[in-house]
């Protein structure tokens, strides 16, 4: 319906101003020449330069990236398997526990997840560092992946898989040649979700890390606890920029894919 009134227009304008103003202000002030972050003293890119010379930030960024790539990749494999089990494997003993363990981490406070994993790592005597953060991130993000992938699996026609099996595919071939291409968009968005969750996580990483591995969120948190700093503004701007470009590109690609698919379906329906 088109009851677009002045009320709706005001609600949207104010709402989106509220959502975007803080980040826009942050970006603007990252180019501030003054060390005082609330006083504007002219345009400058000096904080970006200082950021790039700051070894600690660079190595933290590298650790974060490594952890995110490893954990999101393992989480995607495990999460897709878990989704397949939830949707396709039928009944097996312990299924209720399994689905409970998939959904519980989604609502679990991070402090509890972090604490419990740390106590496990100490209990089994595992040295804390990159490995333990990867294990921790994989565990909670595989649950997000499996929710995303299973919602796609539920909606897709099981008879396609059965047809492949009837035509002589092995179950694995049927999965690789039929199921995987169809659920691929969900698997990719699951990976992206796991990747950003890992990049973003402060609490679980703080619990499970050791002195050898400091991630970017841990570094940022300890820096901003003392107050606002122009270097962090510059760092935030870079991160906001990467995310914005990434999300817009991804949405353009999915839009194009949807258009192409619609065109192909129309072609298929047309009588020869």
């Amino acid at each position: 319906m088109t009851r677009f009134s002045w009320f709706n227009a005001t609600a949207l304008t104010l709402g989106f101003a509220f959502l975007y103003m803080p980040m826009i202000i942050l970006v603007i002030y990252s180019f501030n020449a003054s060390k005082l972050v609330t006083v504007w003293a002219g345009f400058s890119t000096q904080w970006y330069g200082e950021l790039l010379r700051n070894e600690e930030f660079l190595s933290a960024a590298w650790v974060t990236l490594k952890v995110a790539v490893m954990s999101s990749t393992i989480a995607t494999v495990l999460g897709t398997m878990a989704a397949y089990v939830l949707v396709r494997a039928g009944r097996f003993s312990g299924r209720t526990l399994f689905s409970g363990m998939i959904y519980a981490p989604l609502v679990m406070p991070e402090v509890i997840t972090g604490l419990s994993l740390l106590l496990l790592f100490i209990g089994i005597g595992l040295d804390r560092g990159v490995l333990t953060i990867v294990l921790a991130h994989t565990t909670f993000s595989m649950c997000y992946v499996s929710v995303v992938v299973s919602s796609r699996l539920v909606s897709f026609d099981k008879s396609l898989e059965e047809a492949a099996l009837d035509l002589g595919c092995s179950p694995f071939e049927a999965f690789r040649l039929v199921t995987l291409p169809i659920i691929a968009p969900a698997v990719i968005s699951g990976w992206l979700l796991a990747f950003t969750l890992s990049l973003d996580d402060l609490v679980i990483a703080s619990f499970t890390t050791g002195p050898s591995a400091t991630t970017l969120p841990i570094k940022i948190f300890s820096a901003v606890r003392l107050g606002v700093s122009p270097e962090i503004n510059a760092l935030s701007t870079i991160m906001i920029g990467i995310v914005t470009v990434g999300v817009i590109t991804a949405s353009l690609i999915t839009k194009q894919a949807a258009v192409r698919q619609a065109r192909e379906e129309r072609m298929a329906e047309r009588p020869a």
């Binding site: 202000i25 940022i220 606002v228 935030s236 991160m239 906001i240 914005t244």
Partner: peptide, 17 residues
């Protein structure tokens, strides 16, 4: 879009404001 940007940064943005 804001959901994909770092939670920490979105909270931090308010400290200066």
């Amino acid at each position: 879009l804001p959901f994909w940007t770092s939670f920490l940064i979105r909270v931090y943005a308010w400290m200066g404001i």
